[in-house]
C-alpha cells in the first residue's frame, strides 16, 4: 500500500494564546512560541504507520505545505519512521486552506496513493476543509472524522467515523480515497529524545509546485481575514417584560426565570417496602417507554 499523510505544525494550545494587537497574529501570552505537530495529524500519521507495518511492502510518505522554519511536524514524522518527508511550496504565495489543499492534491495527482490521511482539523485554523478538498480535487471518496480503523486491505477501508453527541457509524470506503482522523484514532508511539534530535538534523526535501489556482475547482476564500480575541455571541435569556411591575420582575428572577414549580407537576412521594417501590419505579419507566 502507498500511504500519504498530510501534516502541519501548530502552536501548542495548552499554553494561553492571545491575538497580538499590533500584528493581528496569534501568539502565546507571555512565552516564546512553542510548536507541535497538529494532534489529529499525529493520529493520521500513526494510523498510517500501523497500516504500513501490517501490510509488508507499504510506504508512508509525509507532506506538509508550509513555510521554511515550520518543519516541526515533518521532523516528528521522520523520528517516528516515515519513509519519506517533503515540504511543498507554491511559487507565488497563496494563503488559506483551499490553496493548501490544492498544493497537496496536485502533488498527489500523478502518483497513485491508495489512502491519503489527514487530521480531521487543525488546532489553529480549525476549518476541517483540507481533507475533503483534496478528495474533491482528485475526485476521490472520503471518510471524515475516523476514530478507529477496523480493516484496510483489498482496496477497501472499513472504519468507524465519529458523528455528533458521541454517536459513531461504521462505514466502508472504496480505495483510493481520503480519510481524516480524530485524535483518538491512535496513540502516537514513543520516540526517544535522541531519535528526535537525530531527525532534526535531517535535511527536509522541498518541492516547488507551480499551479494556476484559477483553473482549479476551489471554493471561494476571503482575500483577507482579521483575527480578533473571542467575543461570544449573546444567547437569548429569559427577560421579564419591562412593563410588568418591578416586584413581579424581581419575583420572576428569584424563581430562576421560570414559573414556580406547580404543585401538580411534582407528584406524590411513594413510600413502602423495596419490592413495592422498585415495581412502581419500573412501571413508571415502562409507561414512559424508557424500558
Amino acid at each position: 500500500m502507498k500511504l500519504a499523510v498530510c501534516v502541519k505544525e501548530v502552536l501548542d494550545s495548552r499554553l494561553p494564546l492571545q491575538v497580538v494587537a499590533q500584528t493581528g497574529e496569534v501568539a502565546h501570552l507571555g512565552s516564546e512560541r512553542v510548536a507541535l505537530i497538529n494532534p489529529s495529524d499525529r493520529a493520521a500519521l500513526e494510523v498510517s504507520l500501523i497500516l504500513r507495518d501490517q501490510n509488508p511492502g507499504s510506504r508512508v510518505e509525509v507532506f506538509s505545505a508550509c513555510a521554511a522554519g515550520e518543519e516541526d511536524a515533518l521532523y516528528f514524522a521522520v523520528a517516528r519512521g516515515a519513509d519519506s518527508v517533503e515540504r511543498l511550496v507554491q511559487n507565488g504565495h497563496l494563503a488559506g486552506p483551499p490553496y493548501t489543499a490544492l498544493l497537496l492534491a496536485n502533488r498527489f495527482a500523478n502518483e497513485k496513493f491508495d489512502l491519503i490521511c489527514c487530521g480531521d482539523e487543525t488546532l489553529d485554523n480549525s476549518s476541517a476543509m483540507v481533507g475533503p478538498l483534496i478528495a474533491e480535487l482528485l475526485d476521490y471518496p472520503q471518510v471524515t472524522g475516523v476514530t478507529k480503523v477496523r480493516e484496510c486491505s483489498r482496496g477497501k477501508l472499513l472504519a468507524e467515523r465519529s458523528l455528533d453527541r458521541g454517536h459513531r457509524e461504521l462505514v466502508e470506503m472504496e480505495l483510493p480515497g481520503v480519510a481524516t482522523f480524530k485524535i483518538e484514532a491512535a496513540e502516537p508511539r514513543y520516540v526517544s529524545v535522541r531519535r528526535l534530535e537525530q531527525a532534526r538534523r535531517r535535511e527536509i526535501a522541498v518541492r516547488q509546485l507551480d499551479i494556476e489556482p484559477s483553473k482549479s475547482r476551489l471554493p471561494g476564500w476571503p482575500g483577507s481575514e482579521k483575527k480578533v480575541p473571542p467575543r461570544a455571541r449573546v444567547k437569548k435569556k429569559f427577560t421579564p417584560d419591562a412593563n410588568l411591575p418591578p416586584a413581579e420582575r424581581v419575583k420572576m428572577i428569584m424563581a430562576g426565570g421560570m414559573a414556580p414549580q406547580q404543585s401538580s407537576q411534582s407528584s406524590a412521594i411513594l413510600e413502602g417496602d423495596p419490592d413495592y417501590l422498585s415495581e412502581q419505579l419500573f412501571r413508571f419507566l415502562r409507561h414512559h417507554e424508557f424500558v
Binding site: V234, K236, K237, P246, G256
Partner: peptide
Amino acid sequence: PAEAACVPSMNFPLACFSYLSG
C-alpha cells in the same frame, strides 16, 4: 427591594442578572 437585588443573596439563583448584561 431594589437594593437587595443589587447584591443578590442566596435567595436568588446563580448568575441571575447576566441576562441584563447580555
